[in-house]
Simulated assay, not measured.
Amino acid sequence: MAPKKTLSLIGMIAGIVGLLGFWIVFIPIVGSILQLFIPGAALVLGIMGRKREGLPARGFWLTAIITGIIGLAIAIIALIGWIVVFVAAGAHGAFNNSY
Results as ranks from 00 to 15, higher is better:
M1S: 15
A2D: 14
P3C: 02
K4S: 13
K4L: 13
K4C: 06
K4Q: 12
K5S: 12
K5E: 11
T6Y: 09
T6E: 12
S8F: 02
I10F: 11
G11S: 11
G15V: 13
G15N: 10
V17G: 04
V17F: 15
G18H: 07
L20S: 08
F22G: 00
F22A: 10
I24P: 04
V25P: 02
V30C: 01
G31L: 03
S32A: 07
S32R: 01
S32Y: 01
L34V: 14
L36G: 06
I38F: 08
P39I: 11
G40L: 08
G40P: 10
L45K: 02
L45Y: 07
G46M: 09
I47T: 11
M48A: 11
G49P: 00
R52M: 14
R52N: 06
R52Y: 14
E53S: 05
E53Y: 11
G54Q: 09
P56W: 10
A57H: 05
W61E: 04
L62I: 13
T63G: 07
A64Y: 12
A64V: 09
I65D: 05
I69E: 06
I76C: 05
I77W: 06
I77L: 11
A78N: 01
L79P: 00
L79K: 02
L79H: 04
G81V: 01
G81I: 00
V84M: 15
V84Q: 15
V84S: 13
V85W: 12
F86E: 01
G90T: 05
A91Q: 09
A94Q: 04
N97H: 13
N97A: 11
N97Y: 15
